[in-house]
Amino acid sequence: MSALGFLGWAIVAAQVMLGLAMCCATFRLATGPRAQDRILGLDTLYVTAMLMLVTFGIRTGSTLYFEAALVIGLLGFVSTVALAKFLMRGEVIE
């Protein structure tokens, strides 16, 4: 097996692992006993999806996916902060 073929299979295996990680986060998002567990699952889902996009960028050799990953990182931060603020105070903007 050539080195590039090995790299292709390694990226597919990494994507499968990241997909399983997203499934775990989605399960916690759906069934978390309390609201803070659901927000934690959403935050994990954001980070894992960002890593998944980076592996897609390696697989296709285009830097377009990098920008999508950057946007997901920014939006994940803002959404988690807003949801945590909502849990704390009952409203986001006071």
């Binding site: 080195a3 790299l7 292709g8 390694a10 295996a13 692992m17 980070v47 894992t48 592996t55 697989r59």
Partner: peptide, 30 residues
């Protein structure tokens, strides 16, 4: 896949980094 021309050692290094990162992320999610 559209993997470009890489020397073998570079391909193995990239594969190791990506596999390690994905495995650690999976452990965290579990």
């Amino acid at each position: 896949t559209a993997l470009g021309d890489l020397p073998a050692w570079a391909a193995f290094l990239v594969a190791f980094c990506v596999l390690l990162g994905a495995a650690v992320t999976l452990i965290g999610s579990i």
